[in-house]
């Protein structure tokens, strides 16, 4: 089965073609980072307008790259939520209508399920059951994954998502947009142990997270140093390092607790913050000590992309799921509402 995947839930237009026999055939991406950079954050209306301009040209491109014609497609998958309503609508309207005209089924994909399954696009595929650490701009959660669509929430962020905390902290330090990757790069030049930031919620049992305090802690440190005449790049780098270490440590501690709690040997990391190399390294070390294994997607499939949508959609289509002749999108969509796929 050959499936076209469409991702347009936020500020990236992603298209991909996945073949259940041959694997991923092609994927292309248009990022709107430059467009929104001028505004210091994603402007939903501009995001929607940009998706409309790029969706078909990218579709043509991805089909050419995959070496197939549109008549060879067996299904169309698109992100139907959660995300920005107007942006989701573009991919869903185009994708649903395309499937109608091609006479093939369409399937609505949950964006976070896409992220969660992205590691399965790699050669070494994690086996169920596993624990997933999903860390993106909008979500931070730990879940036990027993199968496709069988997600048991173990813990989640009570305030800012990890990616959001990265972005907000970067903004407060004046690092530009999008802050996460910039902060991570600067942290590499930071001195380890220059500051000691708290590891929020680690001193008590449970698997929930809270990251908003770290951002305040970073700001206070920056202000104090500024007052003392230490407003320079090294100070900035040191704060970035302390912040990153605190986030990474916290994620590692909670992930270890999660795999011990459910007795899993496999940890899967997905979502934009999964691109963070320090996090990957620390989780890897932890899993080795635990006698288990860590799986993660290639860097470009950590952030939003069409490949994960094509993949998740293909699995759901194989499971017999299809959309009715209507366009349904949901800005909010709890993962617990997903149905299990039984093949």
């Amino acid at each position: 089965m050959i499936v076209l995947g469409i991702e347009s839930s936020c500020d990236e237009t992603g298209l991909a073609v996945y073949d259940t026999e041959r694997g991923l055939l092609a994927d292309v991406l248009h990022s709107q980072v430059a467009l929104h950079g001028e505004y210091g954050g994603v402007v939903p209306e501009l995001a929607s307008r940009d998706h409309v301009r790029y969706l078909l040209p990218l579709t043509e491109q991805v089909l050419t790259k995959a070496g197939i014609t549109k008549s060879e497609l067996d299904g169309v998958a698109y992100t139907a939520g959660p995300g920005l309503m107007g942006a989701l609508m573009v991919g869903a309207c185009t994708g649903r209508a395309m499937a109608m005209a091609l006479g093939i089924p369409a399937v609505a994909v949950h964006h976070m399920e896409g992220h969660l399954l992205a590691p399965m696009l790699e050669e070494a595929v994690p086996e169920f059951p596993f624990v997933a650490l999903l860390v993106s701009g909008g979500h931070t959660l730990l879940a036990e994954v027993k199968g496709i669509g069988q997600y048991e929430l173990l813990g989640e962020s009570l305030d800012d998502a990890a990616g959001e905390a990265f972005d907000k902290t970067a903004k407060m330090l004046g690092l530009g947009y999008p802050g996460g990757p910039i902060l991570a790069r600067l942290a590499e030049q930071g001195e380890a142990g220059a500051y000691r930031f708290p590891r929020p919620m680690c001193d008590r049992p449970g698997l929930d997270f809270s990251f908003s305090g770290l951002k305040t802690f970073s700001l206070n440190t920056w202000q104090k140093e500024t007052e003392q005449g230490n407003k320079n790049e090294q100070t900035q780098a040191n704060i970035c390092r302390a912040f990153e270490d605190a986030v990474v440590d916290t994620l590692v501690i909670k992930s270890r607790r999660a795999i011990q709690q459910v007795g899993a040997k496999t940890l899967v990391i997905a979502g934009g913050v999964g691109a963070n190399l320090s996090l990957r390294k620390s989780l890897n070390t932890m899993m080795q000590k635990e006698g288990g294994q860590l799986f993660y997607p290639r860097i470009e499939f950590c952030t939003d992309n069409g490949a994960m949508i094509a993949y998740a959609g293909a699995l759901r289509l194989l499971g017999g799921e299809t959309e009715p002749l209507a366009i349904n999108v949901r800005a909010r969509w709890p993962m617990s509402e997903l149905d299990a796929v039984v093949n």
């Binding site: 929607s48 969706l55 573009v90 309207c93 994708g95 395309m98």
Partner: peptide, 19 residues
Amino acid sequence: SFTGVRIATGVIQGLAFAS
């Protein structure tokens, strides 16, 4: 309405591309 206009645009783009 911006969203309304984009619904028709998306649907027509999808239909026209496919056919």
